[in-house]
Design a protein around this nucleic acid. Structure first.
Lengths: 198, 198
DNA sequence: GTCTATAGGCGGATAGAC
DNA sequence: GTCTATCCGCCTATAGAC
């Protein structure tokens, strides 16, 4: 029997094309006519597959946000020390960026363009994520696993480095995924760990 | 004699208002009508003071870019060790964010909206900045002042943490400017310095 | 200097033929 | 399913009165 060629549903082609354009030119800077051009159909035809332009952005923002939250879920109940939880979160984060860079980039940069209602929900998700992450970092500081620095400074210094990986990492830079993960982990963890830790 | 009330030129009021709106809603998401509303005049009247909407964005992007480049100029010719140059650059960067957060934020997020010609020039400036910074970091690694990690990973981990300070730092967080500078410097420098350094 | 009026273009989205 | 045609709104920027 012949192998069934499971070609990608056309809706996914539209969404993939949209994400590439949103990343390159921004959400507001991308028109549905232009998107239609890259997908190979007329703008009107796309509305057979999607409800609106907003809908595309919503999908990607919440899909990525939920993956980040799943990272927290996967470490929070472990009995690992806080520092090891953070080390795991760094790895998970680097891997997500490597496997889905375009979506991560769009969610990072374009979430402000969400419609009012979805924007509120998105901010709440992110706020929840940050406070759960802050709790882990704060505990590690209290336990002496991390330096005695301000928790917010530690948290956001860490998150900034991770969030913006997508903006600079390109395979052309001759840094393999393993090297990237190792060096990022080293730089961030050594920054957090007290001096003298072996 | 009465003290001369040197009120701000109206052009500056327009630009300040624009930056606040650009930061809150993005360049594309801000209309000249809305800006006019916050400044207290009609949209058409603003064109007596400015040439175009683009012009505002251009001014701020290049003003901030040039300040970053001035930071490099101020350390590059010193005979300080590379690690000390980096420490100085971190301080200068933190201070710039503290003193001009709105402009830094707009330049960071909205430079993509520059017109084609200015966009090219801006990218070139940024590229130049990054390679000069990379040279300092690379030298410090070669000299053993910094850990043996990939130069690009070290550079961008550092720059990401610094660039996105503006996105999370708010005075309401009860972190004073001195605490911020000290803790950010500690986290980043200790990440970069080899283990065992006192 | 600041206004009213409007030009002129491009945006998202829909109607309805095929 | 995909098209042509088009609605309608909002945008930047200008013309010209006052």
């Amino acid at each position: 029997m012949a192998v069934k060629k499971t070609s990608k549903p056309k809706r996914d082609l539209i969404i993939d094309g949209a994400l590439k354009l949103f990343r390159a030119k921004g959400y507001d800077g991308t028109s549905m006519r232009e998107l239609a051009g890259t997908v190979g159909m007329d703008a009107a035809s796309m509305y057979y597959y999607i409800r609106s332009k907003d809908e595309i952005l919503e999908e990607v923002c919440f899909r990525i946000a939920n993956r980040y939250i799943a990272h927290l879920d996967s470490v929070e109940d472990d009995s690992l020390p806080g520092a090891e939880k953070v080390r795991t979160l760094i790895s998970l984060h680097v891997r997500l960026v490597l496997e889905d860079a375009t979506a991560v980039s769009v969610a990072n940069h374009e979430w402000r363009c969400l419609t009012k209602k979805k924007l509120t929900a998105y901010k709440a998700l992110r706020q929840k994520y940050e406070s759960r992450f802050a709790a882990i970092v704060g505990q590690a500081i209290q336990d002496g696993e991390f330096r005695a620095v301000n928790t917010d400074v530690a948290l956001y210094t860490l998150l900034s480095s991770l969030r913006w990986l997508e903006a600079w990492y390109k395979p052309e830079r001759n840094i393999g995924p393993e090297d990237l993960e190792r060096d990022v982990t080293t730089l961030l963890m050594r920054g957090l760990e007290p001096t003298g830790t072996v």
